[in-house]
Design a protein around this nucleic acid. Structure first.
Lengths: 225, 225
DNA sequence: TTGCTCCATATTGTTGACAATCAGTCCGAC
DNA sequence: GTCGGACTGATTGTCAACAATATGGAGCAA
């Protein structure tokens, strides 16, 4: 399901280490700002430092770690300014993805989109508290639209970089965010704009959706350091 | 001036190799689609394969090379679909950068922006044929706006990834592109929208500017395989 | 006590050798 | 004549040792 869960399926030790590190960072197993000791991680993964260093270089490209020469790598810290930046970039990219998806998505993909929405609604009704599952449903929706854009660079940027950072953020604040109902409603509006092939509207709605999400999260973070 | 020209100033061999590789790829010294032999490059740079491999991992993150496990890395090929993707992403990101710049840029930065435009116009009048210099002026303008957004992630994405790919593209088609006059005019409009703090208009104009540039380049590429 | 210098230690950066994998070729069988 | 399979060569992936650099603390002077 999730592209990161097929661990151990990669070909090289570097790639496997990269996946495991990503997982560990996103889930919070490695805390934000924590130092990444090459020797420690290498022994933990049962590999040498060579492949591990390559993995760290890759994670640096994904913006999951920051590296300082001769001083080591640290897990990125998602402070407020950084998240503000992230949500602005996301607004731009997903807005564009939505516009393109409205033009390029097949009817089957649009059907899948509505199916996802129904599943998501059921999940909300059934277990009102499981915020984690809601989040994954949310990602499925946004990811499906990214795929619908048919723009590989856009897909890579969103799925490969931004969504990892967002998931990392949700693992910290998921229990706080309680705006699943309005979010679902906005998702429906977006899906309908896409179904009507209205790219302008689809982009507008997606941007408003993400902008609103940031306002909500930003407010929550004000009260929770 | 250009952030890539302070070669040999990096701290580690990996970083230096990364810069040199970027330079070589952007300037076409390494042709598109060309295979990157680790042993060859390592001896050419006078370093070992370890740091070189890390550099390649980093370039992979910048989308300048594509790597296939056990088969090596190749310079990315900027074919038509890829460039179409790139210009769409650029439209989204620079549109957002422009919107934010209209709100966040200081008066001094805006003055600098107009100064760049004057310099650019002079350069065009003086040497009407030097397309290369024009391109660099173009980048200076767009880069200044990216900086003005105050969004570090946006700046990194544009300056660190997209602009490298664009420069790589220009090194191939610069002698063909002859729309510097209208481009300069559009730049002026954008700068004025920013000066008037009209974020909506600034974003609209920037998106139109980039979208137009793609149409022009796309047409040129149709006649030149 | 405070601040600086110097040294010991741990960590990162780099290297060359070794192992694993892939691509192309040659040979033989059908 | 053509297809299949094993061999050879080259290339990539991995490792463990070595060199270079930064961190942290002890000792000393103001």
């Amino acid at each position: 399901m999730s592209a990161q869960l097929d661990l151990e399926a990669e070909r090289t030790l570097s790639d496997r280490a990269s996946s495991r590190l990503t997982q560990a960072i996103v889930t919070g197993e490695l805390a934000q700002g924590q130092k990444l000791s090459e020797a420690d991680l290498a022994t933990r993964f049962g590999i040498s430092r060579g492949p591990l260093r390559e993995a760290i270089r890759q994670l640096e490209g994904m913006r999951l770690v920051t590296r300082i020469p001769h001083a080591g790598a640290r897990v990125v810290t998602l402070d407020r300014p950084m998240l503000a930046d992230l949500y602005r970039v996301r607004e731009a990219l997903e807005g564009m993805a939505c516009r393109m998806a409205a033009q390029a998505m097949s009817q089957e993909e649009i059907d899948t989109l509505f199916m996802l929405l129904d599943q998501h609604e059921e999940a909300i009704n059934a277990a009102d508290g499981l915020a984690y599952f809601q989040s994954e449903g949310d990602f499925d929706f946004h990811f499906q639209i990214a795929l619908g854009s048919r723009n590989q660079m856009l897909i890579d940027l969103l799925a490969g970089e931004l969504y990892q950072l967002l998931r990392m953020c949700r693992y910290r604040t998921s229990h706080l965010a309680k705006r699943t109902r309005p979010a679902l409603q906005q998702h429906r509006q977006i899906a309908e704009a896409i179904a009507e092939r209205d790219g302008d509207l689809a982009e507008l709605l997606m941007r408003r959706h993400i902008s609103g999400a940031w306002k909500s999260i930003s407010q929550i973070m004000e009260n929770n350091p």
